[in-house]
Amino acid sequence: MFSYFANPVRFQNLCRILVPVLGIGALLLIVPAWVMGLFLVPPDYQQGDTFRIIYVHVPAVIVASLAYAFLAGASFVSFVWRHSLADTAAKAAAPVGAALTFLGLFTGALWGKPMWGAYWVWDARLTSTLIMLFLFLGYIAIRSAIRDEVASTRIAAITAMIGAINLPIIKFSVDWWSSLHQPASLLRAGGPAIDASMSWPLYMSIAGYACLFGWLVLQQMQSELDERRAYALVQRASGRIASKASAQSKGNPDA
């Protein structure tokens, strides 16, 4: 199926259906999930109303991690099979992933202050999320720094793959590091299981964020493909004008 839609024309036909579906899906999932989560769900017996940020925070981090996996996978396909559509996908996913990671870190800090007493804790999960933000930023930076189209595509793909190898190593080392240096009292393991009335809006909002990610990425990819086509048309048209001009000047030696 993937190879069928790897054709840009078929892909754009697919996009014409998927983009509105995902966009409306994101709207229909996120808005009710937030209304329920922020106003209707009962407050947590320990955390009170503070826990409501979960409906903004958790989906952002989950979808951001999926976005990095998507970026690394698309980069791998683009590097090995040199498929331009995979590269377009990676290019479109990186800024969205970076924004979601930032949103996750920011809301996490706001949540951390009342709960743990600190905006930032060097916990394994926080640290690897921060590193993920740097990996996204590094990808975007190296991509925009290299002028040559082919080179920037391939170098950026290698960068994304290095990051994919590095993320588990970081996670492992920080686990080791914080277990040595940091008391475990800050983060309770497990905690009370979440009630169904609280979990449903959470699942909805995760699905909604995923739709939002897909919507943004596909739209960006569409406009990228349109831009390429427009560029190709301009090239062809200017080539036609140039050849006509040279033909005229040949036919008319006085001119």
Partner: peptide
């Protein structure tokens, strides 16, 4: 600066250990 931005995250593991 670009090198440091990309290699920075890689240096975390050797630094920790």
């Amino acid at each position: 600066l670009l090198i440091v931005l990309i290699s920075g995250p890689l240096l975390a593991a050797p630094l920790i250990f």
